[in-house]
Design a protein around this nucleic acid. Structure first.
Lengths: 295, 295
DNA sequence: CGATAAGATTGAGTTTTTCTACACCAAAAT
DNA sequence: ATTTTGGTGTAGAAAAACTCAATCTTATCG
């Protein structure tokens, strides 16, 4: 017979968001990354949602998770909903402060490439307030309150993307150290400096050199490019550098290229614009700015 | 110069939901009602959202709140987003348990009108599990996990609505009490029973009677129709009854109508279907059920 | 004019949710 | 066999959300 239960509550919004992220990214840890929480938090959100729905949504295996066929069918609707919500939040931010712009980029770019461009930019559009957020991974521009991202990628360009430059690497060191280096084999006696986010740059570069000696792949790895660069500047070794980041040290002569070889990596530095950024009628002004940033 | 602030966080989802509800309903207390929280909770949500956005969203006056012109423009996007989310949740519920159906209705209807219909319904579609939720106010079928609502309304019917019957009122009492009543004026000596949700039914009915004596508008008011009815059944007075709710007592003779007058109120009992209910391919089966419910 | 009512706010205190930290586990990769 | 990867479980802590009761402001009523 008909019971009269208490008013049923919907699922928690945060649990739905966690579900959507995990489903879209195919992984709890990736979802945790995107939402900037620990993986354990995602596990718990999914569990409460599964408890609410009284059904499992993911099948767990030791190697990762996969969506239940049933859950699979539901994901697009949730993705659409949270995308809409993201757009609405973007619209709110823009409405409130049309000329505050948040730009996310790699710490190294933020430190060595951006400042000069932003300086010029402030002369052109002094009403814009650009703040820079240093991130290791590109943010989701639909979901997060960020307007522009600037990262290296090898993905094909979308309509809201602007190519800035080609990623290009070569070794650099102080003139002192360079004096000791005549052949590639001499690198065996030097400390090879590398950045942990691009830890196989040395391998890429070496394998592109015609006369390849078995140069050790070791060397000291630094979690920040800035630290590795600092060590190179003090003559602590040979750094595998990205052109965009070290141009000014080459110009000043503080650092030099001990070898000719330059390797183009299969990726470009790309500016991504948030949908609201594109939609906004402010676009003309922004574009002027972007052209300047992209030099 | 470009700072590097910590990763910016988006606004709280619950605050956005509160904002959307308050904006759509034009009132914090109405939003509180819809979300089943206290008005204070809404106030706080809006405040945190305003703090996040660094701008006021509502202008407060003692009479209520009104949206900032700026906020006004943003509401539709949020409404769309939360509607989408509501639909997605409905889809989830249906996917998980296609034949669990939640029906919300007035306590009095749940007690006096529904049971007989649901009984018949279970014979026709025994695989359906209908659970009944008693509510004073119609729920928002897009946002809440409820499939069908059954309430009195004077609004024009939408596409997902089915008219069930016309609301019709008249006084009833026990035969004993009726024996004392020959003219309307005799009501002055009786206790007029009324339900607090329909507290002006007596006035409606009286003003529709041709020979209107100045019958006192007092009497005892009960918060539940069931209580008022119980009192009438014990000869405690004359109850202004709704036809749908007391038919069975008239049939059994336990209660009688001391006067002829029947007043049609300008509202109908209407079944509302959730969008998912309509969308579902289960609709054929449901319809069979609905026809039965609507008798 | 005072009384009352409607609606929102406030601050304190409480409950619930959400998160982290860290130990742990199982398959896959080395 | 060891390491790595990705998820789970639990305890405790932090943050968020909520309630309650008092309070304020203005409109309406008598």
């Amino acid at each position: 017979m008909p019971v009269s239960p208490p008013r049923p509550k919907g699922p928690h919004l945060n649990a739905l968001r966690a579900f959507e992220a995990a489903a879209r990214l195919g992984s709890f840890s990736a979802a945790a990354e995107e939402l900037s929480v620990t993986p354990g938090a995602i596990t718990q959100h999914i569990k409460t949602l599964e408890a609410w729905a009284e059904t499992p949504l993911f099948v767990r295996s030791a190697r990762g998770v996969a969506l239940t066929p049933m859950a699979e069918a539901l994901v697009p609707a949730f993705t659409r909903a949270f995308d809409q919500l993201g757009l609405a939040v973007h619209a709110l931010r823009k409405q409130v402060a049309p000329n505050k712009i948040k730009l996310a980029t790699l710490p190294s770019l933020a430190q060595y490439w951006l400042p000069a461009r932003l300086g010029k930019l402030r002369q052109i559009a002094s009403d814009l307030q650009v703040s820079v957020i240093a991130l290791e991974e590109p943010p989701n521009l639909v979901r997060e309150p960020i307007d522009i991202s600037l990262f290296f990628t090898s993905d094909p360009l979308g309509p809201n993307d602007i190519e800035v430059l080609q990623d290009r690497i070569f070794p650099i060191c102080t003139p002192d150290v360079a004096a000791r280096l005549t052949r590639l084999e001499d690198l065996r006696n030097e400390t090879l400096l590398r950045d942990s986010t691009w830890s196989d740059d040395w391998e890429h570069w070496l394998s592109a050199q015609t006369d390849l000696g078995g140069i050790a792949s070791g060397g000291t790895e630094h979690s920040l490019f800035a630290v590795a660069l600092e060590e190179a500047r003090h003559g602590g070794g040979v750094l595998m550098a990205h052109e965009a980041l070290v141009q000014r040290f080459l110009d000043s002569g503080e650092l030099v290229r001990p070898f000719e070889g330059i390797v183009d990596l299969p990726r470009k530095l790309v500016l991504h614009l948030s949908p609201e950024m594109v939609r906004s009628d402010q676009l003309a002004q922004i574009n002027e700015v972007l052209v300047e940033i992209a030099k």
